[in-house]
């Protein structure tokens, strides 16, 4: 029974990780580099929601919507200002630069928010106990949102012009450009989308956890784990890997101390990189 409880929590963790990783993976596919600062965008959104909700007294739905839009625009702004001018220097320099960006965003959040723990003004979670397994309404919401986001993202990428353009660019930018796709507009759309997804994940973080300013950056470790397992690119594999990492971390608590959760996530990373560097989905982009 306890095992099933851990499994359920694992699914919830996995769904959160899916939300947090999809945007990261999308950036990696289209822009071609690992944006370490993605995790700090979760923080931007989480603390914007907190400020609007708990300090300004906005309703949580309104506050989170505003926070997501703000995060989305922040992401695009950072990309235009910092990443675009050094694009031709290659993924390694972009990766290193993004750690600098993470420093700056993290510092700004620290300066504005300060230390201490923060919670949203949304009331305590209601818990249900079907078949003796405890799950809260907030946890169910994370699962539902992960499903909705995955499905609508799949539809977006397969059915709309912009979505198809994004996929074309992730496959082969030069070819996409020569076929008449506006590379700059598509790139901007991708930044808005991936940062917006980071924003959504940030709201979920604020709903599920008590916020501290170092919490968002701690998520990058798990996000990286999921992204690598998924093969640094494929979107469908992100869903599977998110669940695998989430469940592996929470179920491991059944046997080993809870402090080892990040260790479990990273053992997954190391094993994958050593034995199957191309990730679950292989070299073929989904």
């Amino acid at each position: 029974m306890l095992f099933l409880q851990f499994l359920t929590t694992g699914v919830v963790t996995g769904c959160f990780l899916i939300l947090a990783t999809i945007g990261f993976s999308l950036t990696r596919r289209v822009e071609g580099f690992l944006n370490i600062a993605h995790a700090e965008l979760l923080g931007v959104s989480a603390f914007a929601t907190w400020w609007l909700n708990a300090e300004m007294g906005w309703h949580v739905v309104l506050a989170s919507t505003a926070a997501i839009v703000f995060t989305s625009v922040t992401g695009l702004f950072v990309a235009r200002l910092i990443y675009d001018p050094i694009r031709e220097r290659g993924p390694a320099v972009l990766l290193i630069t993004s750690t600098g960006v993470a420093f700056v965003i993290g510092g700004v959040i620290d300066a504005l928010i300060g230390t201490g723990i923060r919670t949203l003004d949304i009331g305590l979670a209601t818990s249900y106990e079907p078949f003796g397994i405890r799950i809260t309404n907030y946890q169910l919401m994370v699962v539902a949102l992960a499903v909705i986001v995955s499905v609508s993202l799949a539809l977006f990428l397969n059915r709309t012009r912009t979505g198809l353009a994004i996929r074309a660019m992730s496959g082969n930018p030069e070819l996409a450009a020569s076929r008449g796709i506006d590379v700059r507009t598509t790139s901007r759309a991708t930044w808005l989308l991936s940062s917006g997804l980071a924003g959504l994940a940030g709201v979920m973080l604020a709903v599920l956890a008590t916020l501290t300013t170092d919490l968002p950056f701690a998520q990058i470790l798990q996000v990286l784990a999921v992204a690598i397992l998924a093969g640094l690119g494929s979107l469908y594999a992100v869903i599977l890997s998110g669940l695998i990492v989430g469940i592996a971390m929470d179920v491991s608590v059944y046997w080993i101390p809870a402090g080892y959760r990040p260790l479990v996530a990273f053992s997954v990373v190391i094993l994958v990189l050593l034995f199957r560097p191309e990730g679950l989905a292989g070299t073929r982009a989904a």
């Binding site: 050094i86 290193i96 600098g100 700056v104 993290g106 510092g107």
Partner: peptide, 13 residues
């Protein structure tokens, strides 16, 4: 932190 990060970005660029 902010200044360090900004310096870093500027020097890389």
């Amino acid at each position: 932190h902010i200044v360090t990060g900004l310096l870093f970005i500027a020097v890389l660029r």
